[in-house]
């Protein structure tokens, strides 16, 4: 089957999803990111790889952390970064997505970083670029609808590898609103490909998708049972808008059952790490004592995210 992320030599030319990427490519990204971590620790935090290239940040949906870390990453690669304020741009005036892309291509764009509320929007752009014969322009998905957030998935893998070294002995729990989470999907595919033997999903039935068992994920509705003996706990953000609907009774009720308190965390292994893609809702999905505690690696995740995005952009831009 044709994988739109790979060129005819099997090299990564767009990053659209962690799904369908071979372990060798995931590992190459993580290894390259390790080299970029060193660049970020220098006084001169810049290498000339993408000098003269233009990176367009197309965020059709709000995001501060992801957009900022992509911008920092591109700048550390010496690229020129253009942030489009989509809400005030032509899209708001009725221009179609692909017309916007054509216009940016006419401005000599080299790489698009795309966040979109619709699942599949980055695929549509990649496919369009192929049709118009612009194999030299690359797309990186920065989150599309409920579908995928591959750079978050990869930075989570980098974080896990950094602290746990080896994927093949781990028990990883993902907790919360997996149904609406593109992060969870990207994590599950990457964890599975990298050889994690046991991935668990923990949450209320209303927030867990039906397909999880098909992905080999073990489902738990009881938080304490799900966390038992885990090496890694990935908390997901509970989006405020979910709490008022039919899916959940209330934030307080949710926290009682699925909030990560120090007592709950004690069920996991003593050296378990706690991750969160941010932004965190303290007191909703995570207790402050855990978020600020010694097992939390939430801020290192942000730092690793810059190096991982540098790795992704430099790999795709070179292929």
């Amino acid at each position: 089957m044709h994988n739109p992320q790979l060129n005819k030599n099997g090299e990564l030319t767009h990053l659209l999803s962690t799904e369908g990427l071979p372990a060798a490519i995931l590992t190459q990204i993580l290894d390259t990111a390790a080299s970029f971590m060193e660049v970020s620790s220098r006084d001169v935090k810049k290498v000339p790889l993408l000098r003269g290239k233009s990176v367009f940040n197309l965020f059709f949906e709000n995001s501060t952390r992801t957009r900022t870390t992509f911008e920092i990453a591109a700048k550390r690669l010496s690229a020129d970064v253009i942030n489009l304020d989509i809400t005030r741009s032509s899209t708001a005036k009725g221009e179609t997505l692909l017309d916007t892309i054509d216009n940016l291509c006419a401005m000599d764009a080299n790489l698009f970083v795309v966040r979109h509320a619709s699942s599949g929007a980055p695929y549509l752009i990649a496919e369009h670029l192929r049709k118009i014969g612009r194999d030299d322009i690359h797309v990186v998905n920065a989150g599309d609808g409920r579908h995928a957030h591959p750079t978050q998935g990869l930075l989570d893998m980098y974080t896990i590898r950094h602290y746990k070294k080896d994927f093949t002995q781990l028990r990883v729990a993902i907790v919360g609103d997996i149904l609406h989470s593109r992060v969870a999907r990207s994590d599950i595919h990457a964890l599975t490909t990298l050889g994690v033997p046991e991935v668990r999903a923990i949450g209320p039935e209303t927030l867990l998708p039906k397909y999880l068992d098909k992905l080999g994920v073990h489902v738990y509705h009881d938080m304490a049972a799900g966390l038992r003996d885990c090496d890694v706990v990935i908390m997901l953000r509970l989006q405020n808008e979910r709490m008022n609907g039919a899916l959940l009774p209330s934030a307080g009720e949710y926290f009682r059952h699925y909030g990560l308190t120090p007592q709950m965390l004690a069920q996991a292994k003593p050296d378990a790490i706690v991750m969160h893609p941010g932004p965190m809702n303290r007191g909703v999905e995570i207790h402050s004592a855990v978020a600020d505690g010694p097992q939390a690696v939430i801020l290192p995740q942000v730092t690793f995210g810059i190096a991982v995005r540098m790795a992704v952009m430099s790999i795709v831009a070179g292929n």
């Binding site: 090299e11 190459q28 290894d31 390259t32 390790a34 080299s35 971590m37 060193e38 660049v39 790889l49 430099s314 790999i315 831009a317 070179g318 292929n319």
Partner: peptide, 11 residues
């Protein structure tokens, strides 16, 4: 040629 597939950190 693109990025070398196996780069190591400079130290």
């Amino acid at each position: 040629k693109g990025l070398h597939p196996q780069c190591r950190p400079t130290t």
